[in-house]
């Protein structure tokens, strides 16, 4: 359990950075490891435009642990070799957080993701938006994602997505 504010902030930021690092390293197993083991662990990636109009459909809709595990399989096995690869750099910044109960916290963070396709080498913005996170806090003071909603200001993507945001 995390009882000090400083401890909570450190735990949240460690997780935020670990996720950015896993994504930018294309380490999908590392990405999965940032999520809680619970069956309801979830990741959604959706245009804020949809959310604001009560439209639940997203670019990615992984509403259970099995789907998170399947996304690792999509990227590492099913899609391997079929697309133009690109590098990403996630810039993340926590802007708000609060503790819900002893083992749960919530946080809002801004993100911007740059993309550099390997073939052109020309960098552009892939997406900008906010993470709305619900986090499970362990007795040891670690935080894992129980639910992450990547809400994209970018309602029109400049490219198809291979990796989660």
């Amino acid at each position: 359990m995390t009882d000090s504010i400083d401890g909570l902030e450190m735990a949240l930021d460690r997780l935020l950075l670990a996720d950015a690092n896993a994504l930018d390293s294309k380490d999908m197993k590392g990405w999965l490891a940032n999520y809680a083991e619970e069956n309801e662990a979830s990741y959604y990636c959706r245009a804020t435009e949809n959310t604001e109009h009560n439209l639940e459909l997203g670019f990615m809709f992984d509403d259970c642990r099995a789907r998170l595990e399947d996304r690792v399989t999509y990227v590492n096995e099913i899609w391997a070799g079929t697309f133009q690869d690109y590098r990403t750099r996630h810039f993340v910044q926590r802007v708000s957080h609060w503790q819900v109960d002893a083992s749960t916290a919530e946080a809002i963070s801004n993100f911007s993701v740059f993309m550099t396709p390997m073939d052109t080498g020309v960098t552009q913005v892939l997406a900008v938006g906010r993470y709305l996170d619900r986090l499970r806090l362990s007795d040891a003071g670690d935080a894992k994602l129980l639910s992450r909603r990547a809400e994209l200001d970018t309602s029109v993507l400049p490219r198809y997505l291979v990796y989660p945001i």
Binding site: F59, F61, D62, W79
Partner: peptide
């Protein structure tokens, strides 16, 4: 909703590579 989001679009399991 669950099928539409993940299967056929620009990030979909069986269609992402079409976009490529």
């Amino acid at each position: 909703l669950r099928q539409s989001s993940n299967l056929l679009g620009p990030c979909g399991l069986i269609s992402m590579e079409d976009a490529s």
